[in-house]
Design a protein around this nucleic acid. Structure first.
Lengths: 137, 137
DNA sequence: CTGCAAGTCTGTAACGACTTCAGGGTTAGA
DNA sequence: TCTAACCCTGAAGTCGTTACAGACTTGCAG
């Protein structure tokens, strides 16, 4: 295998992606099927590399695969207004902010619960106690 | 159906759980199979109610089902040391803290990206640009 | 008592974003 | 030439549910 051919393994290494994940992206229709070698190996070109880098970066930023698909579709339409891109990003930012808020209040509860633990027996454990809310009837 | 029998629907309502979720918990072995009525309906007792409340509360605090299982096993052993409970809670708290840290830095990136958007055409969109990292070679 | 809507039953498939596995074929390098 | 490392396909597993489909049971109104 010559040094020039971008096999799936090389593409995986170049993008920090799992080989299986790349095949999964192809099956999901987010990464176009590449050419094949004589031996039926996938043979990627630089456009694939760029596209996969885009996907990975967006995924790292927490965009869903559907959002990434939308962003890719938009980015292919260079003349279109950027507003739709802005929308997707802002919706996502709000989701992230909501998750942060939820997790912070959750951690506050965990802090309280854990701080109350005197580490005796389970019978007097405050953590277990806080998990067993009194029957409200 | 008499008012006394705790059917799956009543249990669901009493705990804010979906009926399907309760059946799923039974199949997962986290909620013991209840008695059955003549007509093969599940018939829960107060112990089931308490256990399901425990599960829901722990799930709301973000514990995984495996962690909940472990907590339940520990809480059944009233004489044991509470240290194992403390451990599970602390491991989980660290996970939560890690997620918060990740999300906060992620939101910072999203803020920067979105702020840079001048909302022209996609061709000059800074959001798309930040998603297309330069080939590092 | 009949009829029917609402509740319940089992089993299976779907979600999202992968990961893992089984059972092969291909290739690079020694 | 050998063989280890790579690659192929297709299916199943992960987590924590949710959503069916198609049948059965029950509560209640008329």
């Amino acid at each position: 295998m010559g040094g020039k051919v971008l096999t799936i393994g090389r593409l995986a290494e170049a993008t920090g992606t799992n080989v299986e994940t790349i095949r999964f992206y192809e099956k999901s229709g987010i990464l176009p099927p590449p050419a094949r070698t004589e031996g039926n190996y996938r043979s990627y070109d630089p456009a694939h590399l760029a596209r996969l880098r885009f996907i990975r970066r967006a995924r790292d930023l927490g965009f869903s695969l559907d959002q990434v698909k939308a962003l890719l579709r938009l980015s292919d339409d260079q003349d279109q207004s950027c507003a739709a891109v802005d929308d997707i990003a802002k919706v996502h930012r709000e989701e992230v902010q909501r998750k942060i808020t939820d997790l912070v209040s959750l951690k506050g509860e965990l802090d309280r619960i854990i701080d109350s633990c005197r580490c005796g027996t389970v019978a007097e454990c405050r953590i277990i106690e806080s998990l067993s809310p009194v029957d409200p009837r």
